[in-house]
Structure formats: C-alpha cells, structure tokens
Amino acid sequence: MEKVITMEKNEVPFEEYLAPGHRACTGCGEMLAVRLIAKTLGDDVIIANATGCVEIVSSPLPTTSWRVPWIHTLFENTSAVASGIEAGMKAMTRKGRYSRKTKVVAMGGDGATADIGIQSLSGALERMHEFIYICFDNEAYMNTGVQRSSATPFGASTTTSPAGKQSIGQMTWKKNLPAIVAAHDIPYVATACPSYPLDMINKVEKAMKVKGPAYIHVLSVCPTGWHSQSNATINLGRLAALTGIFPLYEIEQGRYKLNVDPAQLSPIEEYTKLQGRFRHLPPEVLASIQERVTDEYVKLKKKAAEV
C-alpha cells in the first residue's frame, strides 16, 4: 500500500475509502474521524452503520461516499447486524466457502450507542463476537437538529434541554459509556479523538488485531450543534482532552492506560467558552462541573496507576 509520510515520521495510509463529496457540515469533526478510521481499516472490511449523521451524509440515495462494503442498519440493531455478518463469515469459513479475514465494523452515533442500540451492543459484546464497535459521540442527536441524548454533557443547551429562566440546559451527567462497555470484560476499549489523529489510528490498528470485540469511543466535535466556529473543530477536541472533560485512554485486558496525560489539567472554561451551548452557564455551575471533571480524572488516574 502506498503511504504518505507525515507527522513525526509516522505513516498514514494514503488510500481514501471515504470519497469526498459527502454532505457533512463544514468543519465536521465526525466525518474527519470516519475518514481517518476508514483509511486505517483498509479495504478488507464490512461496515454496519446505524442511522445518524454519518449514515445520512455519506449515503444519500442514489449515491454513496463509501468505497468499502457498507450497510445501513437501524438505530437499535447495528451490533446485531454486525454479529450476524461475523457469525455468517465464520460459518462460511468453516465450510470452506470463504477464506479472507474480513474485519467487521459497527458504527453508530452517541444516540445509537448510548440510548437506542445499547441492548444489541451489550448482547454482541457478551457473545464475544469478533468485531469493532466505533461510537462517534457528538453529544446529542445532531442529525435531527440537536436533541439531547444520554451522552449530552451537563449544562449543554439543546433543543430538548433548552437553557432558560427555569433550566440550565441538560440536567444530567454524561453517561460513561466506555465504563459500561469495559464492564463486559472485553479485550479492548479505548477513547479517541481526531484531534489526536495518530493516537486514534494506533487505537484502530490495535482494535483490528484483538481476538474478540473491541470498542472505540470517538469524541466528534460538531460545529452546528455545539455552536462553535467551523475552524475550531481540532482545537476543541484537543481542549476536551487537555481539560480532562474527555480524557483519552485505553483499557487493554482490563488494564487502564492514559494516552494524553497533561501534568496540569487546563480549566474547563477554555473549552466551554468556545461553544454556544455552554454560553449561558453561570460561574457556580461551571465550578461544579470543574469539580466533577477533576474528581473523575483523579479516579481515572488511580485506575491507570494500578498494574
């Protein structure tokens, strides 16, 4: 495979498996993540993709942006479809009718993963199907116009958790999905962000080598839903990691490892002030969010220190 050499002599595959011409918003962090992940997965892959932004913008009939086999599934059964593909390939391999080691990948947004599809995901993880589940978390139902999901962070204003006189926006804390997935004792769980592209590519490569299920949770900056500038996408992803709001870590065979571990966490205001969805928050609420973020980060560091 032809390679482009970039960034500290790391190699990034050259081939694009996501064609340009997709209809994502300008500055979409999600399609950037999908593009880099598709590059890493290569051409021997079958993707099952839940309804959501990625599905809508990459496959408006009669066209597709995909250059690999790809199937659109419903919100609730992405992991079930991926399980079926994997089981089917296994059976055909046993009967000698299939010889390739095709990777099965399921993709979904935070709504498809944390809310609607969590039962089929849990089932597929429990059955230990050999597949990669990638959750593109843009922290709300962005495809239908920014409705809250269980992955929406505390205090964010969405159309169904609007900020106003009686409400400060989302009233619940973001669901810790990687922890729920890790509780299934699967071999590989990771969080990633396209602002750290090489880290994300490494994680996808690791997930491809794992025997059994692997799960990658990708923070996808959404300029439309977060009310941020389209050119701030990369910076926001970076700040999410540096403030500890979305720490980048991996769990290999139950062992935690922090991949981006700043000596001192940046204050969360650096992250929130760039986004319209947090603009209404008064200082005391920001302080309580800061407290929780720091607490969670300390807990995570403790887990990473255990060997």
């Binding site: 064609a19 011409g21 009939l61 995909w66 250059r67």
Partner: peptide, 20 residues
C-alpha cells in the same frame, strides 16, 4: 425507476461527483 431493489448502490464512492 433505475435504482436497484433494496436501495443497493453498486458504484463505490459515487458521491464524489457531488460538488460540495
């Protein structure tokens, strides 16, 4: 009328003709 049943798209990456 020209689409395949089941909304199958067989031309890979055909969205690349779309001028974004």
């Amino acid at each position: 009328q020209e689409l395949l049943p089941g909304c199958v798209v067989i031309e890979a990456g055909s969205a690349s003709q779309y001028r974004t």
